[in-house]
Every structure is written in structure tokens, then in C-alpha cells.
Design a protein around this nucleic acid. Structure first.
Lengths: 408, 408
DNA sequence: GACACTTTGTTCGGAGTTGAAACAATATCT
DNA sequence: AGATATTGTTTCAACTCCGAACAAAGTGTC
């Protein structure tokens, strides 16, 4: 029951029906491969004749290909279809405070190479370095003719349309344009997005099998900050000014601890890795230089270390983590009450302690939840992969190929 | 960039293109009437021939009609088109704690009749009474052949698909099915929805001219409780369990005052009419029987009275209202950070004091807002009409006629 | 008043799509 | 060998938009 926007609509042309069905067919192959033309016709509830034409067009465009012939109890054997992903490549870039991560992967999400280097904060310089390393990566894998684009994720607010980074406090960037410069430098199309939003995109496009199916969910990334990527109706919610999903700065208590954003009592100030570590050390976060705590590696404890200490019996570590878990659950109630997603995915280092904290999280959620259904909202760990943000960056490039046509 | 849901999609048939364009044409006439066929062709960027066929079909179906011929400097004069709304009628029902409101109106939102009676809490009995009064209303206006349905709004959580009222605490209803029973009793299709969500629907469909255009907004209703209707991408957000938009139960302070929902420190517990009145009387809400305060009329002060007292110099009234205004602004920051709507509409009795409180609200919002754009989010008063909830109820029936076809 | 010009609305053949059914290809079972 | 079943293709009808020509209805000019 969507209202047509009378100032921005898409009239159906003579090829619109085809475009729609073509894209449906492509997505069904992606989801259920291997799959025959006849299978497709059954799933789409159209005649085989229509599918035949659609599929042959998709094959001609090299979006899918014919594989082995399958088995059948009786009758002619089906020829299986697959989407082509192996030789469609993406470069993904994750710019973080300490380091920048670079990867080459295919449309199926398989990572072929990884490159890590220290982040440089001057945008122009960073672009130069990244471009050089990307070129090296592509040449080393003879990947240049197969690379279809670059996806970049950054910890901050990004205007997806213009490509400008509006505000990335940890990097100290305001109004920086990486996209066009990097595109010019590399000759490849560049997409850029906020890290949490990109993770949600990755969850949507790479969540195969039972992990798929939810076309409305929230992806909560607990890291140095707290970011939420919202997917509703199969669409990433960016918001009018690109700040949708900033649940990290909703208050648990407006009189609570000071947050890096300037306000007080933000959820982030209770559950970010920094907050958990501060709690362990007995620091008051407001008095600590936040960047000191961000510096991972040298002498500083990471949240992963803290989990390890908790497991080996450090009572203070257990308390710090369990307190975070409680606040995590209280904040999840806000996410549920606001947009009521079908599921919530949790990502971040703290998930390594999930077996210890799940009960606490759910109990806290139950404290505030309005209904039984709200309490029962599935809370799942984001599929554990080595570099979830890099997968998100890759999804930025791969997703448009499979997206629904804009219509009406 | 929407992902096609591989388990719930809509294949394009050979009439899909027409369905899409037909609906676009209908909406354009609705939005820009009066309008000629040639105007439509220009706006849609299709040939006049296509529009001619579409329009003649719409005329045949009696969705639009030809009106007067317009003026033109040169050439043949255009014949104007209008959507037919005058003799398409709706009965709208607003069930509230004290009274139930009943109205007859047309698809254009014009109210033709109103009937108010005391609410009976036994569902079966209420249905009987409502059905009798609806019949009377229809007969009195000879409206029976023109009535296309009944829209019902209730203060509670409604499953829009099944029509069941899952939980309406003020009415004491849990799992009540009004829809099917009322439909059987009256012989008319019945739609039922949560009041705040319906108000958002009304805002979307009745917000003509400059009020329209926003296809992503939040409608905040401040009343006995606080409800938010979320519209994103021209679509009402109901959520997986129909509790999306329950921002009223997001915390300002988890240690704050007790809320009727059982949790503590909900936004609602700070800014609902009850909260504002309690503040004025110096009561502690947690110790007061909430239903005492709900009873309007007899001996009790209403929020409208309180505003009047503030205007005539009652310092305590001013303080109570300004305090509410501040908390309103702080909570609006949460709405903005969560879903970042293009605009926010405010409804409810407190808006009568908007000139006094706007500054306070905006200052509080600025206290927590992450970005300059967030601070500048337009906060508008919901178009002041006599019975906004009834308009929402009417929109439930009228909207499907104009909605975009489900595709892909 | 005749005629050119402009704009609106209709009509008609062409191209592209789904829909239904027949047909060819390929396999199993009796 | 023939019946049966399934896959994939082809063909034609129905329906759509697309483009252009055409009719209708008005204004302006000589």
C-alpha cells in the first residue's frame, strides 16, 4: 500500500514488464541455484516459454550461465542455471582510525586477497596510497578486466548520492569527497557508504539460506562506536539526511555519561568497546581522551582481550561485560519499538562473548519490551566472517546488479 | 535499490504496464486537478495517445470524470479531468476511552455528519451499538449505495492483516476482533488500524499542496499516550509485529518516572497529557490511578484548560508546559536519529500552545542532535482539523484506491 | 471570410511483452 | 518398440507502449 510520489515516479514503458521479470528470474537463480528453466517457470508461475526467452537474454548478457544437466526420475533432464560470480570482481576498502583494509573479492563474496596499511588522515594522500595499492592488487591477480568497481566504507555519515563524507569524527573528516577522486585515479566506479549501513547491505545480500528471508531487519554493529543499519522492505534506510540508524545516540538516560557526540547518556556511551573497557579500568569516560582508548595494539587492552580475561575468571572483566550486555538489551528494546524489525543481527568483537551474555541481553530487553512478540524478536549474531565491513563494501558494488527495477 | 524478496514477489503480467501507468495517471489527476489529458501526457512524458486510452478507461470505471473546458491562449481548449470523490463515501469510527466518535465523509475528506456516544467496553455490545448508529447515519443521508467501507481506529496495537486488536490497554482489550464482526453486522468492508498510524496515513493522503511532497515523515500524536506513525518511501511502516513507531516507550532516562507500560522513564511518561497535568498538580504519576486523569469533563482539568491558564499568566501552568516542551524536543531527537524523516508532524492538544513552546522544543532538539541537518528537520503542526483520527480512519478506506500496484 | 497556425484529443500500424498451446528433444518404464 | 513424462522452443493471439498521422476546435492575420 505505497503511495505513488507524484513528483518522482517511473512510468512503465514497453520493456518494463520484461525488466521486472528478468530481475525476478535473476534473483531466483541467485537464491535457489542450481535451478532449471522449468523450475524457474514453476516458481514464477509463468509459462516456460516466457522463462526461456528471459533466461536466454540473461545468458547472452553473461549474468548467468548454463552448468551441468541435473537428474530426473522421468523425462528429459534439466540443464542447471547459475549466476556468474567467479570472474566478476570487486575491490573493497575499509577506512578505520588505525588502519585501512583493502580486499579483492568476487560477487559471490569469496575473498581473493587482502592488504592492510596504516591510515593516513590527509584525504588526498590516502587516495594516492590506496589507488597505488589497488593497482598493485589488481595487477597481481590479473584482475583489472574483471573488476567492476570499488566499494569504500568509512566510520561516519556519508551522502550516498553525492559520495561526500559529511562527518567522520574519528578520522577528523568533514565534507570530504573521496569517491570522485578515487574514481578518477583508478578509472573504476566507486561507491561509498557508512560502515554500519554497508554491513546491513552485506547481511541482506550475502545472507543465504535460512539467514536470508528477512527483508526487514536491523544490523547493530558494536565497535568503537555503535552503528545500526536498517533494512526495511528489502531496502536500506538511509534517511533524508543520511543519519537514519544512529541509534547509538539515542539516550538510555539523558543524565547519563557524556558521549563523544556532545550529548549525554547515549546508548553508545554505555556499550561501545571504549565504554566497556573504561568500565573495566574504572575510568570515567568523560575524563579520558577517547583516542587514547581507540589506539589498539600498543599496550592497550582490546575488547577481545577483555573477553578472554572474563573467560579465565577475572571477576571485574565479567562485571564490565555483563553490565554492557544489560545496556545492550535495554537499547535493543528501543530499536524494536522504533522500527520493529523482523530480526536483529549483532556484529562486533563483543559477540565473541555471546554465550556468556545472551541471557543478560534478553532479560534486559524483556524489562522494557511492550509485547511478548517484541521480547521474542530473534537476536542473531551477524554471520561470523573475517572482515564484515569489507563484505559490506563489496556489496555496494554487487547489489545494484540484482536490485529491483524502480517502478511506479 | 530494493532487493527483490525471493519468497514473496509479483511477476509482471501483460497488463502490469497499464496498471502502473493507470495508477500514476490517477494520482497525478488527484494531485494536480484540474488537469487535461495533454497536461497528463506532458507530466508523464508519454504520448497523448497512451494517456487518452488510460483516461477513458478511468472514466469508464468512474474513478475520474470530465469537468469544464479550460482556457488556452491558442488552439483547442482542454477538457479538465477531476477525480470522483463527492459521491464516494466512508464511515469512520474512532474508539476512545471516554467516547466513541462516528462520522460520514467523502473520499475528499469532507465531513458530512458526526455522531458521538459513550464508549462501551464490551466489544460485542459496542459493535451492536456502532452498527445501529452507522445504519441510522447512512439512511439519514441516503448514503448506503455510495458507502465503500468503514474505517476504525483504536488506541492500541492492531494486526492490520487479520484485523485483530492485539492490545489496547486503555480499553482493556486483548485479542479482540472487531473488524469481522462489524463487517458482518453492517455488510460493509471494515479496515482497522492503530490511531497514530492512521493519523500518519491521513497526513500522507490528505496533505495537499505544500503539505504534500514529503514521502517520508513521522507523525507524532501527543495525547493520553504518545504514538508515532512512520511513513517511509510513501509507505506506512507497521513493523513485523505491528509495534513500529512506539517511540512513546523509548526511554529518556531508564531511571525516570514509571510509565503505564510497566517500564520506567518512557518518553510518554514525560510528555503525555497525563504527565503534563500531573506535573502541574505536583502529583507523582506513579502514585496516581491513571484512569482518573483520563476522565475528561467532570471536574478534571484538560490540557486545553491548562494551556488557557498558562496564557492568562498561571506560572505553574507555564512551567508544566515548558517542561513538557523540553522533553518533547529531546525525544524528537531520537525519532530523527532513528529514522531521519524528511519532516515531523506534531498532533495533539498541546499544539494549541505551539507559539509558546516551539523555541523550547527546538532548543532541546539542538541539545542532542548529531548534525546541523538534524537540527533543521522541519517540525510542523499536523494540519489542524477537527477530528484528525477520524480522517485517518477514512484514509484507511480511501487509500487503497490510489495505492501503487505491487510489483517485483 | 479565407487561410495559416496552434493545441487538444483520437486513431492506426509497428514493436515489444506475456499467455496459451503445440511441438521437438530427451529420457524412463512397460 | 511404443507409451508416458519432462524439458525446452516455437508460434500465434492478446495486450501494451511508441510514433506518427489525423480530426477537432480554437486564435490570429490578411
Amino acid at each position: 500500500m505505497r503511495k505513488i510520489n507524484p513528483h518522482d515516479f517511473n512510468v512503465a514503458t514497453r520493456t518494463t514488464s520484461r525488466d521486472i521479470n528478468r530481475q525476478i528470474a535473476l534473483n531466483l537463480v541467485r537464491e535457489h541455484q542450481p535451478l532449471s528453466r522449468a523450475d524457474l517457470a514453476r516458481r514464477m508461475q509463468v509459462r516456460r516459454g516466457v522463462v526461456s526467452v528471459l533466461v536466454n537474454e540473461l545468458i547472452q548478457e553473461e549474468l548467468i550461465y548454463e552448468g551441468a544437466t541435473g537428474e530426473a526420475a522421468r523425462g528429459r533432464k534439466p540443464t542447471f542455471l547459475h549466476v556468474r560470480t567467479q570472474n566478476r570482481l570487486v575491490v573493497s576498502v575499509d577506512v578505520r582510525f588505525s588502519r585501512t583494509y583493502l580486499a579483492l573479492s568476487d560477487f559471490g563474496g569469496r575473498q581473493l586477497a587482502l592488504d592492510i596499511f596504516d591510515t593516513v588522515f590527509a584525504p588526498a594522500k590516502l587516495i594516492k596510497i590506496a589507488a597505488r595499492r589497488i593497482a598493485k592488487l589488481l595487477d597481481a591477480h590479473k584482475a583489472r578486466p574483471f573488476c567492476e568497481g570499488i566499494g569504500v566504507v568509512v566510520p561516519g555519515i556519508v551522502d550516498h548520492r553525492t559520495g561526500r563524507i559529511l562527518n567522520a569524527p574519528t578520522l577528523g573528516w568533514r565534507g570530504v569527497d573521496i569517491r570522485d577522486a578515487l574514481s578518477k585515479e583508478t578509472g573504476l566506479p566507486v561507491h561509498i557508504e557508512n560502515a554500519a549501513k554497508a554491513c546491513a547491505l552485506a547481511q541482506m545480500w550475502h545472507g543465504h539460506g535460512d539467514a536470508a528471508g528477512a527483508h526487514s531487519f536491523a544490523h547493530v554493529s558494536v565497535s568503537d562506536g555503535v552503528g545500526v543499519g536498517l533494512v526495511m522492505n528489502g531496502e536500506l534506510v538511509r534517511g533524508h539526511d543520511n543519519i537514519a540508524g544512529e541509534f547509538g545516540h539515542l539516550p538510555l538516560s539523558i543524565e547519563g555519561p557524556r558521549c563523544m557526540c556532545g550529548a549525554s547518556g547515549c546508548w553508545e556511551a554505555y556499550i561501545s568497546n571504549i565504554a566497556t573497557l573504561s568500565r573495566y579500568f574504572g575510568h570515567n569516560l568523560s575524563k579520558t581522551e577517547p583516542k587514547d582508548l581507540l589506539a589498539d595494539g600498543r599496550n592497550r587492552l582490546s575488547i577481545t582481550d577483555l573477553v578472554a580475561r572474563a573467560r579465565s575468571g577475572d571477576a571485574k572483566a565479567v562485571t564490565a561485560i555483563q553490565t554492557t550486555a544489560r545496556y545492550l538489551g535495554l537499547g535493543l528494546a528501543s530499536v524494536i519499538h522504533a522500527v520493529n524489525p523482523q530480526r536483529i543481527y549483532i556484529g562486533g568483537e563483543i559477540t565473541a562473548a555471546w554465550d556468556m551474555i545472551e541471557g543478560t541481553v534478553r532479560a534486559a530487553l524483556a524489562e522494557r519490551a511492550l509485547t511478548e512478540e517484541a521480547v521474542r524478536t530473534p537476536i542473531l549474531l551477524a554471520a561470523f566472517v573475517d572482515y564484515p565491513r569489507l563484505r559490506g563494501a563489496a556489496a555496494l558494488v554487487a547489489a545494484p546488479t540484482f536490485a529491483a527495477p524502480r517502478v511506479a
